[in-house]
Design a protein around this nucleic acid. Structure first.
Lengths: 151, 151
DNA sequence: CTGCAAGTTAAAGTGAGGTTGAGGTCAAGG
DNA sequence: CCTTGACCTCAACCTCACTTTAACTTGCAG
């Protein structure tokens, strides 16, 4: 049957926009699996492309490969992910993106205020200097969202 | 004079929200300098806090330490950065943040569309799978902004 | 059957942005 | 003076996400 053809690593890598070495790496980490030919070469079912698509999308959203592995684990591997699976995960991603966007927006707006006041160039702008602010009037950044603080 | 007191590294690190090791590292990279006691210990003028604030803020905006070094180089070290210096740099950062925000927003919106269609779970969602899309109808991601593509 | 591109492995390398450890010194309070 | 915590240097190590290298094998077109 044409539907069950298996793809070699180079083909999959090309179609997924990844290097073959990345696929081997993902396999070592347990993100994907491959069948083998009698000679030991990897052969992938087309479904791996879906899995890799998932990995790529998740990485864009900022998940680590470790987190992605966990997310993949919730999609029973034998089973084709349902629309519900996808909706659940993408809602979580959306929240993550919303957070990231909110954080950057807050930073940008704080920056815009600073352009007006010149405060960073002067003394202790809370945008950039949470530690020093702490020394004088409380603690933590005033403009930076939790997600962007590094302390 | 009280105005010229010099701070030891631990104090500066604490106020800047960084580890002492990071300050030594920044010094090696040429981002900051320190005076030394006769015994060889670092002593920092308060102005280093401003410099570190700058570094922190720039890192939040996504600049590498190398880029930050270049940016710092345009602020003559002896001279207190003027409001104009700050405005110039923060305008550049703002553009960068605008790009980042736009990219994430585009990604989020693509994701939102996908929640409806379930396409990632099905075949070849351009959001997640630019490579496979290339195999079938052109090339490159359809939703992802340039800045977020990895190919 | 041959030639050679594409595949295999394990281990080491990359680069950003630091941290950790060993071994030793300095500075300030009691 | 003495202790003790903070500091010093240098080199090695860390995480993440891969890539590269070396030495070798497979698989398929001709």
């Amino acid at each position: 049957m044409l539907g069950t053809e298996l793809l070699p690593i180079g083909e999959v890598a090309h179609r997924a926009g990844l290097a073959p070495s990345a696929l081997r790496y993902y396999e070592r980490l347990g993100l994907i699996e491959a069948a083998r030919t009698s000679g030991g070469q990897r052969r992938y079912p087309r479904s791996v492309l879906r899995r890799l698509a998932f990995v790529r999308a998740a990485r864009h959203v900022g998940l680590s490969l470790d987190e992605i592995k966990d997310a993949l684990a919730t999609l029973p591997e034998a089973r084709t992910p349902t629309v519900a699976d996808w909706a659940r995960l993408s809602r979580a991603w959306r929240a993550r993106l919303d957070d990231q966007i909110a954080g950057l927006t807050a930073l940008r707006d704080g920056l815009t205020r600073c352009i007006g006041c010149g405060c960073l160039s002067l003394r202790s702008c809370a945008l950039s200097n949470p530690g020093d602010a702490a020394a004088t009037f409380g603690d933590g950044a005033q403009f930076l969202p939790e997600s962007l603080r590094e302390d």
